[in-house]
């Protein structure tokens, strides 16, 4: 019986993780993100270019296994929609940035509106459907 209970517990945690991961949550309070201070890059070059409607700000580390595939996924979104800008911040050696924004895992994605305000954030691999819904709310078609 204890074995069944243990396996059931672990399975329950695993299923909950799978269902909840990448869902993200909306952020209240309209916190302005100062891109200049974060020194984000686009395709390896410094860039603080905000998207006309939305900016996907990806926090990555060099040791993060899933960051490259998320980078490709978000870069594809950027190329499909004129109003989106995808920027990346490498926090490998800037752990203070993680502390300031309460980032506990990479990738973490911040969705910024046209005024560079944080409206939605996701830890881990983003759920594409949820992310698209949030992008639509910002007027991205």
């Amino acid at each position: 019986m204890p074995v069944i209970a243990l396996v059931a517990t672990a399975t329950f945690v695993g299923i909950a993780y799978r269902l909840l991961r990448g869902r993200g949550h909306r952020v209240l309070g309209r916190q302005q993100i100062e891109l200049r201070r974060l020194r984000p890059t686009k395709n390896g070059n410094l860039s603080t270019e905000l998207g006309k409607q939305a900016t996907l700000l990806q926090f990555s580390t060099q040791y993060c296994g899933r960051c490259p595939s998320v980078r490709r996924q978000l870069a594809q979104l950027e190329s499909q929609h004129a109003g989106i800008s995808h920027l990346e911040v490498d926090i490998t050696d800037r752990i203070n940035v993680a502390a300031r924004f309460g980032i506990t895992q990479t990738p973490t994605i911040f969705l910024l509106n046209a005024k560079s305000e944080l409206v939605y954030r996701v830890g881990g691999i983003p759920n594409v459907l949820k992310l698209n819904q949030e992008l639509e709310k910002l007027g991205v078609k």
């Binding site: 672990a10 993780y17 580390t61 752990i95 993680a98 980032i103 506990t104």
Partner: peptide
């Protein structure tokens, strides 16, 4: 078990937190 069957590596998740 979580790592093998759900691709959820608890220890890896702790890595960034502890680094912080």
């Amino acid at each position: 078990f979580l790592n093998a069957f759900f691709n959820f590596c608890l220890g890896c998740q702790m890595y960034l937190v502890l680094k912080r």
